[in-house]
Design a protein around this nucleic acid. Structure first.
Lengths: 229, 229
DNA sequence: TATTATAAGTGTATTTATAACACTTATGAA
DNA sequence: TTCATAAGTGTTATAAATACACTTATAATA
């Protein structure tokens, strides 16, 4: 008989996903309105139970896919929450993951099926259980990550203006940046391609569009360097 | 009936502790030789099962205390490992925590009871399950943490020389530092008290001893600043 | 067609942080 | 008295970060 493997100690394990998106100059998070117990009718993160033969990473991907229809999304494990009574029904531990997705690309239909909605970070309601804590930790991690590796590919349309990119950084970091210094910093990273095209919607003069150079972007992602902003 | 709470999905949850210590100019980790199944006789991290009415933090503290007799030790959750077959006996997820302790202060007797031993990082043997992965992640986190908040209080004797502190940083970061630049950096943090006493063991001239100024040290810990070394 | 309003685009100087570097000093042991 | 050893100490050079203001292109309007 194996010591310690006491069946009474077995518990449920869940995964909850913090799904970030960006548009209208605002960082948003995707929440669902529960049409099931417990806490039916309240807002929460998208989550689900870990299955017996599945890793946490797999569960996180499965859950994200169920809600957004998206695949091959970068997700990162954040933290495991374990307060004894965090789930009022049964002892359940939950590991949170966060994803960064392009708000335009998800499957509208699925979102509607789940009564899901994008919330600006400043307008997030009270969530069930400890989900507000999970979200707070995710925001902090996201802010820190912008200092360590470039961000944006997942959050911006394919072609974007320098100002859009700056707004994204300003939104994530929640502080204003000097546009000349910002451009210099970004250029020194050498991950953007300047296109001949201009976006004419934001001004009479128009502003040049840029694209990420995928290969270089990925390289910087993995060789995580330090970018101070 | 609550949706999703399927008793078949209940699993075991464990906590494994990476316990760091420092002496003889070497960073060490405390490992136990298992005298129980599975993997009896092999080396592993100190771990244990999460109890039904206990948080992961509590379990980590309990497990550390059982091996070292120490209390009020700073511990930090690292990552949750969930490969399906990581534990060959039963599906078990494990959350790793790391602690930094003073190698002199633990309870020798307990350590002997558990067949525990301090290993230099370069001499760590093959460990059971995914414990080598856990250790690797912990080392990386520890290195990153030295850049974000001061470290050392937990790892050095009460009174120490500037050279000991430098050796500690060099060991953790695994690179050599210039002693004049190091002293300037440390002094600019304003967390040390220079004593009138000298340590005469390391040289004929002797070297002044220092102490951490607890209040200031703690302040810097919490207001995590960025120290580049 | 001249004027105006708007956002885009651009470069330099200052300050601050980091990195490189070598000699003098105190003391115990030979 | 000399020698060997580690401690202790500042300055200069380089790199990075920050602060800062005017010109330009164009559509809309008078």
């Amino acid at each position: 008989m194996m010591v310690g493997y006491n069946p009474d100690d077995k518990i449920f394990h869940a995964v909850d996903c913090i799904i970030f998106g960006f548009n209208d100059e605002d960082l948003k998070v995707l929440l669902i309105q529960r049409d099931f117990e417990p806490e039916k009718g309240k807002w929460s993160l998208m989550g689900g139970f870990l299955k017996k033969v599945e890793t946490l990473d797999d569960a996180a991907i499965r859950i994200l896919n169920r809600l957004t229809g998206m695949q091959n999304i970068y997700m990162e494990q954040l933290y495991t929450f374990s307060e004894v009574n965090r789930d009022p029904v049964e002892r359940t531990i939950s590991t949170s993951y966060y994803a960064i997705i392009n708000i335009e690309k998800h499957n509208e239909e699925l979102i509607e099926n789940y009564n899901a909605k994008w919330f600006s970070l400043s307008e997030v309601p009270n969530l069930i259980f400890d989900h507000n804590d999970m979200l707070d930790k995710a925001i902090k991690r996201l802010r820190r990550r912008t200092s360590i590796s470039p961000i944006g590919f997942e959050l911006l349309p394919e072609k974007f203006t320098m100002r859009q990119l700056q707004k994204l950084y300003e939104t994530i970091l929640d502080k204003e940046l000097d546009k000349r210094n910002f451009i210099n910093k970004i250029n020194s990273m050498d991950i953007l391609i300047k296109l001949k095209e201009k976006d004419m919607t934001s001004s009479t003069k128009g502003s040049f569009l840029f694209q990420f150079e995928k290969a270089k972007y990925d390289e910087k992602q993995t060789n995580s360097f330090y970018l101070k902003l």
